[in-house]
Structures are given as structure tokens and as C-alpha cells.
Design a protein around this nucleic acid. Structure first.
Lengths: 236, 236
DNA sequence: TGCCTTACGCACTAACCAGTTACTTACCTA
DNA sequence: TAGGTAAGTAACTGGTTAGTGCGTAAGGCA
């Protein structure tokens, strides 16, 4: 039945001659490229897992998105779980790598904290998939995160930066001196993360498109203001 | 192969005789109770959908949890989507109903806001499933929420309460007067919601069990403090 | 030029699962 | 008490999907 294509493929390769013909099917020939194929699969899977969740994601859909054969997924990643874990690791690595590029040492504490909060907000604007993937992983009780050997139980780079900025600010007398950096880190991420992770239900309940540009700018200003006001508060 | 059981069933029913024997299965008799069965299915589905997500949830698992026959699910809710929608509506209704019971009018603005923030935090402690269900629904782009006729696009009761408290506080001179109630509502929910929706990954990254009692108390105090400090801030 | 490893592809299967068919049994009312 | 209706059950089905068996061809190396 579906032998037409394979018989074409079997009929030797006159690539030099046939290169202009393109036959009926698209892929007469493909260069072999392990890294490229692996990478295409990985990012296709990132999109699929983020959009549909672990159970909702379809291996066939990933293969199609990646323009790769399904068999290759099993070749490179073993099974669905292996692929999911690789995606999770790659996503974490990418997010942390972006955080590491932040250089706030030369800014005064208030400016530095403002930049850090804005960076956090903007990173979610740029890549909404990471949030969806984290939600999926939390639904699974961080099962795969725990299983990972590539994602050590280390703090986010932001964590250290926050502790540093808060300390500098307290020393300079512009920030309060009773701040727990861990709580503050969670709060800074919260204020942006929740807005994006729940955009759809929030937009519906509030009756306004929270993904539109004016709403985004409004939210970002509010978040930065709230964090800075909290820090500037003087004790006693 | 699996014909053994069906041949037993085919072999007529000597129910009258066998009534005392209890055969091999447990439920020889059950009282008929439409509402009770419907309700058992609904809350079993609530747990299953929250724990596994829309795609991950299994109809057979829900039937088993509810101690009901699978056919009953289709009898009462039509199909999986109908069941999911009913669960979503019930969950929203329950959450809002709890919010409505809050009576903060007699408290001064600071006390009232403190209570409201604590209430929000505690409601997530009491029922973690609601958060998981909201995450699932957001992954689906609020598709079912929009489809619902029972959940109108009304604000949460908390929204009105927040606006009221902020206004009272500003009038009394204890709160700043430039607060956007919508942004504040999102922020108050954020600060608690994110902590719980991401407990597993956060606990792993921070290296501490955030579900344990001391961590919960610490977080609650931080959130209340942050909101109140923000509100107490006086304008230039 | 021949050989061997590895990237790649097709077509299949076994399991799973939402939904259904065909039936029995409890309860209410005329 | 007859009989109709709705609650309840068991066994099946058709479509879907993760995972595989087996074969082909590309490219490096001798």
C-alpha cells in the first residue's frame, strides 16, 4: 500500500540528477546529523510537554514538530520519561544560564534590585513554556527533578544576588536589615510567576486581557514598586 | 483467555439462592441514592483531576475512588469533559462560598487586611487540590472556565473586600492612597499561591521541606508583613 | 573500494482507555 | 401489586498511543 515512497527510495539514488525533481514526497535525502536531530527533538519536546503536560504530550506529535522519525526519539532518549527528564534539565540549565548573565554589582542597591525584579518578570514574558513545564513537574511532585543528576540541589543564581543586594542596601542604610533572602526570593518570583501561570483564568475573572501590552507594563511597575517599597521600609 | 469470568456470568443467576453466600464479590446489595452517588463521583473526580490533570485523570480510577460503577459517571455527567467542567464549577463555588463567610467590616483596616491575607494563605493549606485544578485549567487556556455558564465572569468576593479595606485605610490615613485594588488582589494571591503550587520544586531547590509546619508559619508571617508594609508606606 | 558503525525510516503490536451495549434491580406511584 | 422509571452493573469495543523489530543508507576509516 504505502510502498510507493519506499520503492522510490529503493530505486537507487540519482541525487545529482534528481536533485531538482523533488519527486512527490519531500524528504528524498537528509544529511545525517546526530546533534542537530537530537536538538530538534529536544526543543520540539519542550514545546509539547509545556503545552500539554506529561500525560497530554504525544510522542508522535513531538516527532512531527521536530521533523524527525519517531524511532529517533527512542534512539536518543530511551523512552518518554527519559525525554521529559532531558527537557526539564535543558530548561533549567537555560533559565539559570540567562540569570548568570545578569551583572548587577556596579549598580546601587535600589537600581540593582529594580533590574533584578524586572529581569525576572521579562524572563517569563520571553518564555512562557518554562512556567508551564514547572507546573507540570509540580503536579508530578517534582519526581523527575529529584531523579536528575544534572540539576543539583543548588540555589538559583538569583538567590545569591538577592542576598548580596539586600546586604549592600542594609549596609548603606537604604534597605531594612531584617530581610530573609529566601523569603524575598520566593516573593519576587511569586509576584511575576503567578500572573503568567494563571493569565487565562485571571483574565477571565477580571474581564481584561492580561497578556496585552498595557496590562503587562502595569503589572511590571506594580511588582517592582511593591518589592522596593517593602525593602525601603525602615524598622522601628 | 479472559473468557472464564464471562462464562460464570452467563451461567444464569441463582441470586435468590446465593443471597446468603456472599459469593466472591463484596457488594451484593446497595441502597439507591442518586444525589449521594453523584456527589461521591464529583469529589472523587475533584481529587483525581487535581492530582493527575485533565489528560492524566482516569475515568476508571474515578469510578473506583467513588466506589461507583463507571457507567454512572456517563449517566450523570455525559462524558469526561462534562465531568471535568462540573468539578471546576463545584471547586470555584466552594472557594467563593468560603470567601463570602469572611466578615471584616468590624475590624480596623490593618487588622482586616491581615486577616484577609492570612485567610488566603490558610485556604491553600486546607485544600491544595484547588491550586492544582487551576493550574490544569490554565494549561488548557481556561477553555472550560469560559465554557461554563455557572461561573460568571465576576470578581472574587475578596476583590471587593480588598478595595473596601484599602479605601477605609486611605481615608483613615494609615494606608497609602495610590493602590490599585486589582493589582493588590493579584499580589496577595500570588504570594501564597506560588509557594504552594511550586512547593515540590521549591523545596528541592532550597533544600528544605516547605510543607512542614515551621516553614509554613514563617511564610505566612512574611506574606502578611510584606502586604502590610507595602500598604503602610506613605507617599512622598 | 569495501567495511563497519550509526543515523534514519517504515510498519507493526500490545496495552490502554473513553465510551457503549445490554442487561438487572430498587423504588415510587396509580 | 403491577408496572414504569431511574439507579446500578458487567462485559465489550474501537480508536489511540507508547514502544519495537527489522531493514536501509550515510559517512568515516582501512
Amino acid at each position: 500500500m504505502t510502498k510507493a515512497r519506499s520503492s522510490v527510495a529503493t530505486a537507487k539514488k540519482e541525487k545529482v540528477l534528481a536533485s531538482a525533481e523533488t519527486a512527490e514526497a519531500k524528504p528524498i535525502k537528509r544529511r545525517r546529523s546526530a546533534d542537530a536531530t537530537r536538538s530538534r527533538i529536544l526543543w520540539a519536546a519542550y514545546g509539547e510537554f509545556a503545552a500539554k503536560g506529561m500525560e497530554g504530550a504525544r510522542i508522535d506529535a513531538i516527532a512531527e514538530r521536530a521533523d524527525a522519525n519517531k524511532r529517533m526519539i527512542y534512539h536518543y532518549f530511551g523512552d518518554k520519561e527519559g525525554l521529559y527528564l532531558a527537557v526539564l534539565e535543558a530548561a533549567y540549565e537555560r533559565a539559570r544560564s540567562a540569570e548568570r548573565k545578569l551583572d548587577l554589582n556596579r549598580l546601587d542597591p535600589e537600581m540593582a534590585m529594580g533590574r533584578l525584579v524586572e529581569f525576572t518578570f521579562d524572563s517569563f514574558v520571553k518564555d512562557r513554556s518554562f512556567i508551564q513545564l514547572l507546573n507540570t513537574e509540580n503536579l508530578l511532585g517534582a519526581r523527575y527533578l529529584r531523579r536528575s543528576e544534572k540539576i543539583p540541589a543548588l540555589h538559583s543564581p538569583l538567590f545569591t544576588m538577592i542576598a548580596d543586594i539586600v546586604e549592600r542596601g542594609a549596609a548603606a542604610g537604604v534597605f531594612r536589615n531584617d530581610v530573609d533572602p529566601a523569603q524575598l526570593w520566593i516573593s519576587i518570583v511569586s509576584l511575576s510567576y503567578f500572573y503568567f501561570s494563571n493569565v487565562h483564568t485571571l483574565s477571565f475573572v477580571i474581564g481584561k486581557d492580561l497578556q496585552a501590552q498595557p496590562a503587562l507594563a502595569e503589572r511590571k511597575a506594580h511588582v517592582v514598586g511593591m518589592v522596593l517599597d517593602y525593602l525601603r521600609h525602615k524598622q522601628g
